[in-house]
Simulated scan of single mutants.
Amino acid sequence: MSKQIALQKSGSLRKKDGFIKGFIKQIDLQLLVIPSIIHIIIFSYIPMYGIIMAFQEFQLGDFPGMSRWVGFLHFNRLFSDPNFTTVLRNTVVISLLKMLINFPVPIIFAVMLNEITHKNLKRGIQTISYLPHFISWVVGATLLFDFFSVDNGAVNSALQALGLIERPIHFFGKGEYFWWMAVGTDLWKELGWNSIIFIASITSIDYELYEAAEIDGAGRFAKMWYITIASIMPTIILLLIFTIGNLLNTNFDQIMMLTNQMGNARLRDFADVIDTYVYRVGLREARYSYAAAAGLFKSVVNILLLLGANKLASKTGNEVI
């Protein structure tokens, strides 16, 4: 027995020595990683201490963690707030619409782009689709307001010219249009950027698979389905897991800009989401602990969704955790 323990200790020491030697051997690469680790610790782990604010009555000037303890008081207030039901509904609906529409469209775009054989045309389409991503929502919202304007806006003018509408539509002035405008503008801005990883996955597919499929008599759509999409399926599932895990993380910048920083009261019933609610009620009104409680609720739900999606994905052998 003692001999076995001695062998285990010697084995662990050998592994430790091997790790140290490997670390020293790759010290130049390790130094490149250290800044990222420091960044994560400072901006991701240390701020987690602030979670305790959700269970306290924090006031400006209080030392973090030393405020009066109130337990679940802020959570009770959050769930009893009649506005929170509307906020949660808007968050879930907008996020689900984005997931159901804006997640598969970049996949289809990448697959269709792969079918273009003309290199210059392919590059041109890629470049055009990427450009909106680099426009901030401050500038993007201004362009969209002009584009969908009631007064001589390009969209309303085109719809009237085609005889589809008699009077201009106030797209950003009516709440019932906002969900679709949020989904559509997000798709316009992020389509090309979100397709990059799928395009990269497609380029790694062995071309001999397509040649073998042609010999077997497979058509273009058969090759797209059974080779292209099937080959990038692990990537699709991986990104779907991350998308589900971020279900309650709506685009704060987008919502704020499209609603003029929540200044348009007519849109609030359809546009107010958890992120804007935390900003408007928690930060503007200096209810910091209340805002922390709302943010913690959102984070816990996102973690549960991520774990649930990963559990389902494990049945296909594509789990990430």
Results as ranks from 00 to 15, higher is better:
Ala54Thr: 08
Ile38Asp: 11
Ile199Pro: 00
Ile46Gln: 06
Asn260Ala: 02
Ile196Asp: 03
Ser67Glu: 02
Asn152Met: 13
Trp69Gly: 01
Thr142Asp: 11
Leu113Met: 14
Trp225Phe: 11
Gly124Tyr: 13
Ala222Cys: 04
Leu113His: 05
Gly317Thr: 05
Asp253Ile: 01
Ala158Ser: 13
Phe23Cys: 15
Lys15Pro: 00
Phe79His: 07
Met112Pro: 03
Lys122Phe: 11
Gly22His: 12
Leu131Arg: 04
Asn120Gly: 14
Ala218His: 00
Ile205Thr: 00
Val93Asn: 01
Asn102His: 07
Val92Tyr: 02
Leu32Gln: 13
Ile321Asp: 03
Ala161Ile: 03
Tyr288His: 07
Gly11Arg: 12
Ala230His: 01
Tyr45Ala: 12
Lys119Ala: 13
Phe72Ile: 14
Ala200Asp: 10
Ser149Thr: 11
Ile227Gln: 06
Ser136Ile: 09
Asp62Phe: 01
Ile52Met: 05
Ile40Glu: 04
Leu247Cys: 01
Phe148Trp: 09
Ala293Val: 04
Lys15Tyr: 12
Leu7His: 02
Arg68Ala: 11
Asp151Thr: 13
Ser157Met: 11
Ser2Thr: 12
Glu285Ile: 07
Met257Phe: 09
Ser299Asp: 02
Val320Phe: 11
Thr185Ala: 10
Asp81Gln: 10
Ala158Pro: 09
Gln26Ser: 14
Ser201Ile: 02
Thr250Asn: 10
Asp269Leu: 02
Lys122Asn: 10
Asp28His: 11
Asp151Ala: 10
Glu285Trp: 11
Arg14Val: 15
Asn249Ala: 05
Glu115Ala: 11
Ala222Leu: 02
Tyr288Met: 14
Ala154His: 06
Ile34Asn: 06
Leu312Trp: 09
Gly173Trp: 03
Glu208Cys: 05
Thr228Asp: 08
Val70Met: 08
Leu100Ile: 15
Ala154Thr: 12
Met233Val: 01
Asp146Ser: 11
Val111Phe: 04
Gly163Ile: 10
Gly140Ser: 12
Tyr277Leu: 07
Glu319Ser: 15
Ile42Pro: 02
Glu190Pro: 08
Thr316Asn: 06
Tyr45Asp: 00
Asp62Asn: 15
Glu214Asn: 02
Glu190Tyr: 07
Lys119Val: 10
Asp151Phe: 12
Met262Glu: 00
Ile205Val: 08
Asn249Trp: 04
Leu238Trp: 09
Phe147His: 04
Asn310Tyr: 10
Ser95Ile: 05
Ala265Met: 08
Ser10Asp: 11
His74Met: 03
Ile40Asp: 04
Leu304Thr: 07
Leu88Phe: 13
Gln26Thr: 13
Ser289Val: 06
Ile41Glu: 12
Met181Asn: 05
Leu31Trp: 15
Leu96Trp: 09
Tyr279Val: 07
Leu307Trp: 07
Ala161Phe: 11
Thr203Lys: 00
Gly219Ser: 03
Phe270Thr: 05
Ile202Cys: 05
Ala286Leu: 13
Leu78Phe: 14
Phe145Met: 11
Ser136Pro: 08
Ser157Gln: 06
Tyr277Val: 07
Ile27Lys: 14
Ile237Cys: 06
Ala222Arg: 07
Ala154Ile: 14
Asp275Asn: 13
Leu131Cys: 10
Gln254Glu: 03
Phe252Leu: 08
Phe84Gln: 06
Thr142Ile: 15
Gly245Val: 01
Lys298Ile: 01
Gln261Ile: 06
Phe297Tyr: 13
Ala200Glu: 00
Leu267Cys: 03
Pro35Leu: 14
Leu305Pro: 01
Ala110Pro: 13
Ala291Glu: 09
Lys122Gly: 09
Leu121Arg: 05
Leu305Lys: 04
